[in-house]
Simulated scan of single mutants.
Amino acid sequence: MAPITALHTAESAANTRHGTPVVPGIAMGPVIRPAVAVDVSRVGDIQAATPEEESQRFDAAVEAVAARLKARSAEASGVAAEVLAAQVGLVADKGLRKAVTKAIGRGISAEAATVAGVDQFAAMFEQVGGLMAERVTDLKDLGGRVVAELQGLPEPGVPNPDEPSILLAEDLAPADTAGLDASLVVALVTSLGGPTSHTAIIARQLGIPCIVAADVDDIEAGTLVLVNGGNGDVVIDPDPTEAARLIEVDKSTRAAAAAWRGPGATSDGVAIAIYANVQDGPSAKKAAAGPSEGVGLFRSELAFLGRDNEPTVDEQAEEYAAVFAAYGERKVVIRTLDAGSD
């Protein structure tokens, strides 16, 4: 099988941007970009009502945003559902609400208080660094959604293309990526983010090429690009013949990977056990149809997310039974909920 490489022309080299490869694969299409984010630069100019009225406005906006996220989480599956459920928890976080309420008490509007609270927590996340720093985009997106709700503006989001397209953005929030149609959004490229960002996580679940930390902010919507998620290249106006070759090679590689059923082993024959990471019965059933030999991590705590009350013992037992049924006599490792640590 021919290797998947970059385009080999001087012209393509001049038109190539490079980033951090996250999910391998080749895709080509016109660029689409998310809607412009809500402008929060002038929220300090908004005239505030009484603190009680502003608090009520904030609570109503949070409730509306959380309800939409919950609805999307219910329609999603796997990692996408998990990510959206976490967003519901973040937008309704007691610490964030306390910071916003305190700011409102100083006589500013709910919009200004929301931005102040988000900025306060974003600074904390950035100071911690690592995974927490990569959640700053998620936090600011939620703040923007709350401000949009307060001002009666359309919710930010990704347009629905009518042909297979490449989504380019500075960064993407979970609410944008979790509902993507992989038959129409065939690759993701961001100028920010890292391999553990929610953009990367959802791209892996969708099975579409993904590159992060790429210099693509000046590439306009409608521009034809080729994305190579294996080496991190984004090629502007690629050579059609070479692009078609790379895409065919990628299709053959994907087909071979999809047909593989194990067992896992290194190239020199050392056996490697392959276990799945699941969160419920449907994800276990899907994983069991592949080459996994069992469940290495059943994330039972996720049954508690995205709901107002804890699941009953019967509901939890039903979820456990569905996972066990998918794997029969095979190994299942369960991570139980440590409620006291949260």
Rank of each mutant, 00 (worst) to 15 (best):
M1Y: 09
A6V: 15
A6D: 15
H8P: 12
S12A: 14
S12M: 08
R17P: 01
V22D: 00
V22Q: 03
G25P: 07
I26S: 11
I26P: 08
S41W: 04
G44I: 00
G44K: 01
Q47I: 04
E52Q: 09
R57V: 04
A71R: 04
A74G: 10
A81R: 15
E82V: 14
L84P: 14
A103C: 08
G107I: 05
S109V: 03
T114M: 14
V115T: 05
V115Y: 05
A116F: 13
V118C: 09
A122D: 07
M124V: 11
G130Y: 10
T137W: 03
T137D: 08
A148K: 05
E149S: 14
L150A: 12
L150G: 13
G152V: 12
G152M: 07
G157Y: 00
G157D: 01
P159Y: 01
S165I: 02
L168G: 02
D176Y: 13
T177R: 10
A178K: 03
A187P: 11
T196L: 08
A200S: 14
I201W: 00
I208H: 02
D215A: 15
D215W: 04
D218T: 15
E220I: 09
A221H: 06
L224C: 06
V225E: 05
V227R: 03
G230C: 07
G232F: 00
D233N: 13
V235D: 02
E242Y: 03
E242L: 15
D250K: 04
G262Q: 03
Q279R: 08
D280V: 00
A284D: 00
A288S: 10
G290C: 04
G294H: 05
F298H: 07
R299W: 07
L305C: 13
L305M: 15
G306S: 06
E315V: 06
E318V: 10
V323A: 08
A325R: 14
A325G: 06
A339P: 12
